[in-house]
Nucleic acid binder design. Sequence first.
DNA 1: TCATTTTACTTCTGTTTTGAAAGTAATATT
DNA 2: AATATTACTTTCAAAACAGAAGTAAAATGA
Lengths: 141, 141
Amino acid sequence: MIKKFRSSCPIASTLDILGDKWSLLLIRDMLIKGKKTYKEFSLSDEKIATGILASRLKQLEAFGFITKRKLPDNKKENIYLLTEKGIDLAPLIVEVTLWGEKHMRVHNPRINSYDELKADKTLAINMVTENYRKVAAQIIG
Amino acid sequence: MIKKFRSSCPIASTLDILGDKWSLLLIRDMLIKGKKTYKEFSLSDEKIATGILASRLKQLEAFGFITKRKLPDNKKENIYLLTEKGIDLAPLIVEVTLWGEKHMRVHNPRINSYDELKADKTLAINMVTENYRKVAAQIIG
DNA sequence: TCATTTTACTTCTGTTTTGAAAGTAATATT
DNA sequence: AATATTACTTTCAAAACAGAAGTAAAATGA
């Protein structure tokens, strides 16, 4: 997985990897919705194509956002879990959610409210990350 | 500028518009670097292609992130300025910067430090947005 | 046990997007 | 009046994407 970076800017470098329409949604699915298998990802609301899903998982793993493992009692399913690097995207995901809720509903009226998030951003981030860590630890036993 | 949204998720809807490698960099150039003309954008460190630049500016304008105007004494240059919707991306941009600085340097060693940002996030956001508003107001007279 | 289903992909094909270069038209400068 | 600058558009090859179909191993059901 070779990757050339366009500049020395941290924003540009982040977009060099996460700057597409799917990568951050996979992180969202893991962090917020607790998804962990290929099948679960493939059933997303946004209908990701299976080829794109495979390539994104590969890239996210190559760059250390996620890990891939098998559980002892299941030789078929792969379990994808966020690393600290991936979990650290929680504040970013919260900001995107808040911005999107505030400014995108005018374009997409279907967007829901997230009042809990607005009320206490820091608390929301902590709850999401703590919850994820707990659930992940439970999965790997 | 028609656009179909993939789902009711605010993250997905935001990515439907900003989920590419260039849009957020243009916002960055305006908000942080004070760029405002086509020429200035085209001279970015990341070497955006002129066709992509034109299409992104068009989309950002169509979705109300930026406005396009001419100054009374210059019939040639167009001045692009962020709207409130665009300025509101400051917290998101700060989060991306901080995340990128923390986690991307391992992949791209050229990335610089942003200690001021880390020290006080809220202050940094306020300074950037207040500065932008002031500079923009001065430009339009 | 053996057929069926499930999971996790890969492959194929047509379409869309991107990137690099060149071209154009109006305005501004020398 | 000639040249340069600005803001694009156009062109075209290459890369990325989307949807459908196919494959192989593992798990399940009869």
